[in-house]
């Protein structure tokens, strides 16, 4: 031990001695030293802890090879199957630019060139988001994508679409320009007519801003994640009357389609 070492327990020589002589260490229950004890208690199938039950349920419903697959069905090699992930990509751009706009504020995004550019990026990525999502919706509708125990995948997609409309609508209302004033007072008449104008007041900028920047993006994000997890667990829907085949995307495997899930 050196004189300038403040704590002898972390003296390098002492640490080495502990590692060299594990039997000298009193660990209380000696877990990890007894060969009869499972070295990884996390996979104990009989454990009734909620963490174990949650993990077992997750692993049975969504094992890692389905969550991050290296093989895809052969029918996925079509442009119509690209629009789901295009929608997700546009959504990510919306989230990132929306965060920048929220932190920088309207005094920045209404006046400076970078602010106007970010504002436009946010706006146009929303336009692309809806275009991609509608094409995705048409593709899935015409191939009856709710087949094969995929009803919840379809339903979460529908709910995500509706929540996205609400998010975009409140976004139009918080532009703080003449366009947003016009939209809000046109909508106010309609919402008053159906009796929800006092609860959902589109002329209340603070309420619309909180809904647009806080609540609704969270709703869309959670439903979108749920939707993607369902797609991964149920698999991508095959075209109607198509043999279910899959390709490997690993270059080593290289070759032809192999039939799965007949």
């Amino acid at each position: 031990m050196t004189a300038d070492s403040p704590n002898p327990a972390v003296e390098p020589d002492n640490v080495q001695a502990v590692v060299d002589s594990p039997a000298d260490v009193d660990t209380g229950s000696s877990v990890g030293l007894d060969p009869t004890v499972d070295p990884d208690p996390g996979i104990d199938p009989s454990s009734s802890m909620w963490t174990s039950r949650l993990r077992r349920a997750w692993m049975s419903k969504l094992p890692p090879d389905e969550l991050l697959p290296d093989r895809q069905p052969a029918y996925v090699a079509s442009w119509i199957y690209v629009f789901g992930v295009l929608t997700l990509a546009a959504f990510l751009v919306i989230l990132v630019t929306g965060l920048v706009l929220a932190f920088a504020g309207p005094a920045w995004y209404h006046t400076s060139s970078p602010g106007l550019f970010t504002n436009s990026l946010h706006f146009w990525s929303v336009q692309l988001f809806f275009v991609f999502m509608v094409v995705h919706l048409w593709g899935k509708f015409w191939m009856a994508a709710w087949r094969g125990r995929r009803a919840m995948t379809w339903i979460t997609g529908v709910v995500a679409f509706l929540a996205s409309i609400g998010t975009a609508f409140t976004g139009y209302l918080v532009q703080t320009n003449f366009d947003s004033q016009w939209i809000s007072f046109e909508a106010k008449d309609g919402l008053n007519a159906v009796g929800i104008g006092a609860f959902f007041n589109v002329a209340n900028l603070g309420q619309m801003l909180l809904l647009h920047a806080c609540l609704l993006p969270l709703v869309v994000g959670v439903i979108a994640v749920w939707h993607v997890l369902l797609v991964r667990s149920r698999g991508v829907v095959p075209p109607i009357d198509t043999v279910d085949t899959e390709f490997s995307v690993t270059p080593a495997d290289g070759a032809s389609a192999t039939e799965v899930r007949p």
Binding site: A77, S78, F83, G254, S256
Partner: peptide, 25 residues
Amino acid sequence: IVILIMIVLFALAILLPFPKGRDRS
């Protein structure tokens, strides 16, 4: 214009061939 763009995109997505990856023969 937006509706027409979506219809054209949908038709192209159905009709255009998808490029083959290097790993598929």
